[in-house]
């Protein structure tokens, strides 16, 4: 008898080849890049607020 397959939830996967499932962000590197861009934008806005009103 074959050993049972591990459940899908915990099956071993290659981390970077794991699909993102997002149409416009096909790889994890792109997802991380977008997060960094958001971060830099927020810092820029906060710096602008500080400079304008302090």
């Amino acid at each position: 008898m074959k050993p049972p397959k591990p459940p899908t939830a915990f099956r071993s996967v290659e981390p970077e080849s794991d699909p993102t499932g997002l149409a416009w962000l096909p790889t994890w590197k792109v997802v991380y890049l977008v997060v960094i861009i958001f971060f830099v934008l927020w810092i820029t806005l906060l710096v602008a607020l500080t400079v304008s009103f302090s």
């Binding site: 899908t8 939830a9 996967v13 981390p15 794991d18 699909p19 993102t20 499932g21 994890w28 997802v31 991380y32 997060v35 958001f38 971060f39 927020w42």
Partner: peptide, 21 residues
């Protein structure tokens, strides 16, 4: 507790974007 690696990662990225605002 995520259904897959993808779900866990996206959950974390959701926080990475939303937490500072």
């Amino acid at each position: 507790s995520g259904a897959s690696l993808r779900e866990g990662r996206l959950g974390l990225m959701f926080n990475a974007v939303c937490k500072i605002p």
